[in-house]
Amino acid sequence: MASPVALFPVRYFRFSFTFSSSSRSRISVRCSATMATTSTTITPAIIVGGGRVGRALQGMGDGRDVLIGRGQQVPFDFDGPIFVCTRNDDLDAVLEATPSSRWSDLVFFQNGMLDPWFESRGLGDANQVLAYFAVSKLGEPPLDGKTDTNPEGLTAAFGKWASAVAARLHSGGLSCKVLQREAFQKQMLEKLIWISAFMLVGARHQGATVGVVEKDYRSEVTSLIAELESAAAAERQLTFDYGLEERLCAYSRAVAHFPTAVKEFKWRNGWFYSLTEKAIALGKNDPCPLHTAWLKEIKII
């Protein structure tokens, strides 16, 4: 969405140039210039969660945001988006603290597979953000996850507040594209594959960083990526854009310092394991045998 442009009135400048000659003629030149400045309107938001992401988003605002902690009641008389920047396991508490009339204004910044939770809470068209930026420490500026395969950036937003999210991130020097549902779903699944594959392979190797996984255990992680890609595509009946493996490895190079660990199993690797359980219950082959074997190896299941 293009930023609004504020046009200032035309201003005129008079410049006089004096030329020495026998006639000592004086020539006046009248010039005009139109001054335009681009300004971005930041929509005030309620921000739930005062951690690294929540504080970073607040820092990109214009001072009109309302920051509340987990468990605090969400104001009902504040128009605008509600940025949810908590852990996934806190989402039920956030929903309970939000008036039902404002549920359509919730914007979820969480990683992982949220669709089953959305469906169970009647939030099928929920606003979401795939945040491919990182905040290393509280108060530090975010690092944009631009890569050599996607120099334009990977962060994406979906929903009625997507343009407002993009405008805020752009004002903070970060990339963000606004996507429609189908395109967003593909990118959401790509990120789910990334976090599930790289965290699991890293956990097999004493918590190697994402960069070490990409460099030293690439054959392992690409085999797992291919397996999870196939399973996700079959489950959602879609085709991923060509080059998924390289895109995910490129992102890993951009955030090479990230540690690895299998966390929030229900929201991440747990979705792929649910496909395994469903297939086995139907007497079919495990669609993710490598994933299952490695989860057992590190005693997650």
Rank of each mutant, 00 (worst) to 15 (best):
L67R: 11
V213A: 06
A126C: 09
L169W: 03
S3D: 15
T239H: 09
E96P: 09
V201H: 11
C249V: 08
A231N: 12
V129G: 00
R30W: 14
I225L: 09
S3Y: 12
F8V: 12
V10T: 05
V66H: 04
R236M: 08
G112Q: 14
Q110F: 02
P99R: 15
Q237S: 04
A167Y: 01
G63I: 07
A279N: 13
G61A: 07
S163A: 03
A232M: 08
Q128F: 00
L275C: 11
G243D: 05
G61K: 01
F240L: 00
L154E: 02
T41Y: 15
T34I: 10
G202I: 12
D65V: 04
R14T: 15
S219M: 05
T34A: 06
K299F: 08
D77Y: 00
F78A: 05
T276N: 12
N150C: 11
I46W: 04
R253W: 13
S163T: 12
T40G: 09
K278R: 14
Y132S: 03
M60Q: 04
K160F: 04
A197V: 01
S23A: 08
L244C: 05
D241I: 00
A226H: 01
S175H: 03
F109G: 04
S252G: 15
R30M: 04
F118M: 09
I301F: 08
E245R: 11
S3G: 07
R64K: 08
I68M: 02
T86G: 04
F184V: 02
T18A: 11
A203V: 03
Q180V: 05
F118T: 01
V107C: 14
W267D: 12
A250L: 09
L179Q: 00
S223F: 02
C249H: 13
N285S: 11
G51Q: 01
G283C: 10
H291Q: 09
H257R: 12
I42L: 13
L114V: 11
A157L: 01
N111A: 02
T40I: 08
S223Q: 05
L67P: 06
F184C: 05
S20L: 12
S32F: 01
T38Y: 14
F265Y: 15
W117H: 09
N127Y: 06
T41F: 15
G153T: 01
L189T: 06
E297T: 00
K278N: 12
E119I: 07
S175P: 01
I298C: 04
M199S: 08
M188C: 03
S136A: 11
D216F: 02
F15I: 10
S230M: 05
E297M: 01
V201R: 10
